[in-house]
Design a protein around this nucleic acid. Structure first.
Lengths: 222, 222
DNA sequence: ACCTGAACACCGTTCAAGT
DNA sequence: ACCTGAACACCGTTCAAGT
């Protein structure tokens, strides 16, 4: 009944590769050691020989995803294309984004932050503001990706997504226009929206703000 | 030994209030029904009479937190102070931010998005871009809050935070300057950084970008 | 209508035993 | 050094029985 045990030896890399597949298929919540050991045709103890626990494993997976994205992006990019490369990679593995944090460090998250900071060096932005702006951009990229308006994980097919959006758009239309003056008129926008466009819109606002104020002082407090 | 059962009757509101306390104390991961029923001095079934399951309960908690923030903020705010009110409220309950999403709707998330959209109406921004920009700002506020550089949940005391940052700053200093030209020079910035400043920096970039391009067309693709 | 609390299914982790 | 797999502790959820 049960499939034969694996004969090749396990490694951290093999475990991570299998885990990424399962995370993509089932999401972080549906990803269990039972699924993992079945896929790897081995026992739980074998996995624990290579990784400390589930949390570390998921972090390793997220780091692999981010590392691949940075490698694929190449070193010669500007801020905007770097951000889009990362967005696209994280969008394909939506469970990964929330693990991309600087502290405690996901190794490739440090690389990403460094590249953002380095790209700012070729900019009129005053040196003392560089760290603040670099982390602001880093935060924008990974955290907005982590939390798109329609989570891809929820619906698999494009048709399912369209149907879901149509249903939500309809519910927006029937909201009370007194309390929701904006949303009642935005149902069509919701139905036709694209998550990547929203990401790009915010990113361009951020970069525009950067261009326009990088010479000047702090923005006003009011 | 075990404390007396409660005599007052339970309600959804009472359950949510107790759950928020425990979420603040233990984080989402440490929050269990065992802790909850002990705190409420009742049985598991009693809780399930008032809420469908744990996921719904945490969503109700997050919605309460956001609702209180919006109520406290008052209706007369500009975009910047609204964003800061929400940031400050979510910062006090760091588990809540990742549940503040538009679809599937957290009720008060709809209110927040509507208020952002409505505030944009009094702006030269072309009407057809309003939804895109509103969601971009919404995404920035809630998702950056969800993922600050130093998660507050990790360290309780200010002294603990300082010590942790100092340790990380030291590790940045000893990185290879070839591969991390920016971070090796940013150790001091890390040690002295403030999460709220980073949030405000990104927010002001976003709002500056909005001011400067709201009349004009799309930003360039390159 | 609302609550009790034992029972169930599931899941991450451990560990003595194997090779 | 690397793997096995039964056992353990824990946790969300259910449900027959109570008031």
């Amino acid at each position: 009944m049960s499939p034969a045990r694996r004969t090749e030896s396990l490694s951290r890399e093999v475990v991570v590769t299998a885990a990424i597949e399962l995370l993509d298929e089932h999401g972080e919540r549906g990803f269990t050691f039972k699924l993992l050991t079945e896929r790897l045709r081995t026992g739980a103890g074998a996995v624990y020989w290579h990784v400390a626990n589930k949390e570390e494993l998921v972090r390793l997976c997220a780091d692999r995803v981010l590392g691949d994205a940075l490698a694929a992006a190449g070193p010669e990019q500007d801020l905007r294309s770097l951000a889009l490369s990362v967005y696209d990679a994280l969008d394909r593995h939506s469970w990964a984004a929330r693990h991309v944090i600087v502290l405690p460090s996901l190794p490739h998250a440090l690389h990403l932050l460094d590249r953002i900071g380095t790209l700012l060096t070729g900019t009129p932005l005053p040196a003392e503001r560089r760290f603040l702006v670099a982390t602001a951009i880093f935060n924008y990229v990974v955290s907005v990706t982590a939390q798109d308006v329609v989570r891809v994980a929820t619906v698999d097919t494009a048709a399912g997504r369209d149907a879901l959006l149509a249903a939500y758009a309809k519910s927006w239309e029937s909201l009370d226009p007194q309390t929701f003056p904006f949303l009642t008129g935005a149902a069509t926008d919701l139905r036709e929206h694209d998550d990547r466009d929203q990401f790009v819109t915010g990113l361009d606002l951020l970069l525009d703000g950067l261009r326009h104020q990088s010479g000047g002082g702090q923005p006003g407090e009011g």
